[in-house]
Amino acid sequence: MTKTKPKPSRKTKAALLRDMLERPDGAKLDDLCKATGWQAHTVRAALSGLRKAGHIIERGRDATGQSVYRIATPPEAGQ
């Protein structure tokens, strides 16, 4: 009997979105769309879901005037 190696767990798109937003410089909407393959309205809906889960999402502007989103603080542990 041959043993097969277990496949590494796949990272969800929601987890990818959170990781990008947790970077110190945040992420632009276009970058979030490209990384997830989602349309802009779907990314914005996911941002709303993160807000509902307790994350504080900051929206700022970069040097070119594009919106940059970033998670300011994670939700409280145990909630």
Rank of each mutant, 00 (worst) to 15 (best):
M1Y: 10
M1S: 06
K3W: 03
K3S: 03
K3D: 06
T4R: 06
P6V: 03
K7D: 09
P8C: 01
R10H: 08
R10N: 09
K11N: 10
K11R: 15
T12E: 11
A15R: 05
L16Y: 06
L16F: 05
L16D: 12
L16V: 13
L17M: 11
L17F: 02
R18A: 10
R18L: 14
D19A: 11
M20K: 14
M20G: 04
E22C: 03
E22N: 04
P24H: 10
G26K: 05
A27M: 11
A27W: 00
A27K: 11
K28Q: 10
D30I: 10
D30P: 00
D30N: 05
D31T: 13
D31M: 09
D31S: 12
L32A: 14
L32G: 04
C33V: 04
K34E: 14
K34W: 00
T36D: 02
G37Y: 00
G37S: 01
G37H: 03
G37T: 02
Q39D: 04
Q39A: 10
A40E: 10
A40H: 05
H41L: 14
H41G: 06
T42E: 13
V43K: 06
V43D: 03
R44V: 12
R44G: 08
R44H: 12
R44Y: 12
R44T: 12
A45H: 15
A46P: 00
A46E: 13
A46Y: 13
L47E: 06
S48Y: 10
S48D: 13
L50V: 06
R51F: 06
R51M: 13
K52H: 15
A53Y: 08
G54I: 04
G54Q: 06
H55V: 03
H55L: 03
I56Q: 15
I56K: 15
E58F: 01
E58C: 01
G60M: 02
R61E: 11
R61G: 02
A63T: 06
A63G: 05
A63D: 12
T64I: 07
T64E: 13
Q66D: 11
Y69G: 00
Y69I: 02
Y69L: 02
R70I: 04
I71E: 01
A72E: 12
P74T: 06
P74V: 05
P75H: 10
P75V: 02
P75M: 03
E76I: 09
